[in-house]
Structures are given as C-alpha cells and as structure tokens.
C-alpha cells in the first residue's frame, strides 16, 4: 500500500504541513520500523502518512542557560549521553537502554512521545521535573512531563503538534541512582526501574525524589510522599523510612505478563527503594 511521506525542509515547513494531515512522526524509527513491519522484504504497514523529522536542524542540539537544559527532541540517546550538561541520572538510564546501535538511532523525543510503559527515560524525566515544549503552526505550549504522559502509549499531544524539546531544570543531586531490573545484563527492557535522588545538607534532607518506571502504565512520582522526608534531620528521616515505603506500596499496580509478575515488580521496587534509603541516610 502506498502512503504519503513528507520530508520537511525546516521546522516552519514541518509545522505548516503537520496541520494538513494526520502524520506519523518518524524520528529514529527504531520502534516504528519494528511495529509496522509485516514480512521481511515487504513494505511496512503505514496506514497514515509519514513525516521524517530526524534531520531537522531545529530539532537537534542541546542548549542551556543558567536554569535549564534544553534537549531538542531528535537528539539520539547517544548524543544525550555524551553531553556534558545532561543530568547524571538521565545518563544512567540511557546507558541501560537497548544496545549501542539502537542508542545511536533512537531519539529521546521518541522515547517520550511514544510513552511506552517501559520507556526508561520517562521515570527519570518525571524525577527531574522535566517539561516538554510542544509546537504547532500557531501555538507553543509547555507542559509538565507528568501531565503530558497520560498512560501507556497515551500523551497529551494534539493534532498538528510536535514535541519540540525537553526542558530540564538544572540542579545538583548529591546522591542519584537509576536501578533497572531486566531479564539479562544488557539489551533488555525493564521489568521495573527505580530512580532516586537525595540531597543532604548539615544533616538535614533538603531534597528527596523517587520515580518508579515500568510498573504502572505511567511512571509514578509523588511529591507528597517525598516531602515527608524533606527538611527532616537524617535521624528523623530514618525513622520515617517505613512510612515512605508504605506510601509507595499503595501506589504500585504491577501486571502479570510475559516479562514478570505483579508481585515481583511491586515488592522488588520497594526493596530497592528501601536499600537506597538505608544507605543514603546512614552514609551521612
């Protein structure tokens, strides 16, 4: 079957054309090419027109100012990984993903906009309070990532709109951990992941963040639970570990599927967080 494909010359052309048709946006293609395949040697099954955006200058490159890092949507995972200003915890997530060949092609924008349950950049971006900037022909809007991602393969992206960049507030995290549990040592999708950061100053917790990935359909982040430890002394915080763990326990809804079990996902996630908290709070 023939479908229309479009290669825009610049962002303006891209946004102008986006309003005309219901396009699939093709960036790195590492997921789309697999999902649309039918038979080796036959055409991919694209039932909607396709727009190739990977080479758009405006969608590549990483910039920063005093407060934010701006990662354009079509940066490959490898490019983000190699950037000096990209947050450490994001790099940890990226290097756990797929294999070098895929990381060279797959884009961070694709991982976000695809909104797969197992997308490993998502929980980290939740944790980092990232925002996404969405552009259409006549509009530009900025949404919190946690509002943009609505569920498994569901986002707030509107017709005619494109994920332009990911905006990450600059912040130092003293302790940061991305813990991925997969089915082998490399080239594996998450059964679950736990992302944690903590900042401790003068024996007081002044920031604490947690995000769980690949368990619920949408990454989990809960500022209310995090705040239980914030501005607490380390020893007070230690006494609140179980309160925190219980809080998260109530939020986790894992599935039994071909990759793992509900029980394994939920319990292992809590254990990983528990270990992180014990170590983080005892170290200081």
């Amino acid at each position: 079957m023939e479908v229309k494909s479009y290669i825009p010359i610049d962002l303006e052309d891209c946004l102008g054309e986006l309003g005309n048709e219901n396009y699939w946006l093709f960036a790195g293609g590492t997921d789309l090419m697999i999902r649309k395949r039918q038979w080796h040697g036959a055409s991919r099954k694209f039932v909607r027109p396709v727009m190739f955006i990977n080479d758009l200058k405006e969608l590549n490159g990483i910039e920063s100012d005093d407060d934010y890092i701006y990662i354009k949507a079509c940066n490959s995972l490898a490019e983000v990984y190699e950037n000096d200003e990209a947050p450490e915890i994001l790099k940890k997530a990226i290097v756990s993903m797929a294999n070098p060949e895929i990381r060279n092609m797959a884009t961070i924008g694709g991982n976000v906009a695809n909104a797969a349950k197992v997308g490993d950049t998502l929980p980290v971006l939740f944790l980092l309070d990232a925002r996404v900037e969405l552009r259409s022909k006549n509009e530009k809007r900025i949404r919190k990532i946690s509002d943009f991602i609505k569920g498994k393969y569901q986002t707030d992206l509107r017709k005619g709109e494109l994920l332009y960049q990911i905006i990450i507030p600059k912040k130092e995290y003293d302790i940061n951990m991305f813990y991925k549990v997969g089915s082998r040592q490399g080239d594996t999708l998450s059964k679950l992941s736990v992302s944690c950061t903590m900042n401790i100053e003068n024996n007081f917790v002044n920031d604490f963040r947690v995000a769980f990935g690949a368990i619920n359909n949408k990454s989990i982040r809960d500022r209310y639970i995090e705040e239980k430890l914030i501005n607490k002394s380390v020893s007070e915080a230690e006494g609140l570990i179980y309160t925190v763990l219980n809080g998260y326990q109530d939020l986790l809804y894992g599935d039994n599927d071909k990759r793992s079990t509900k029980r394994y996902r939920e319990e292992t996630a809590i254990k990983i967080l528990h270990k992180f908290l014990k170590e983080a709070l005892n170290e200081k």
């Binding site: 089915s183 082998r184 490399g186 594996t188």
Partner: peptide, 27 residues
C-alpha cells in the same frame, strides 16, 4: 535460568528477541 517460554491458551507468549531472553555476551 533465563529462557522462560510460556504458552497461554495454545499461543507462545514470547515471540521476539526481547521477550524471549537468551543470554548475551554480557551474561
């Protein structure tokens, strides 16, 4: 320890390299 292949209602559930996890060089 790794290759957990299951059949549900007569259908193999793990049908690709990702879901059917064989050891790689790293393992």
């Amino acid at each position: 320890m790794m290759e957990n292949m299951t059949s549900k209602n007569g259908k193999i559930e793990q049908n690709n390299f990702e879901a059917y996890s064989v050891p790689t060089i790293k393992d």
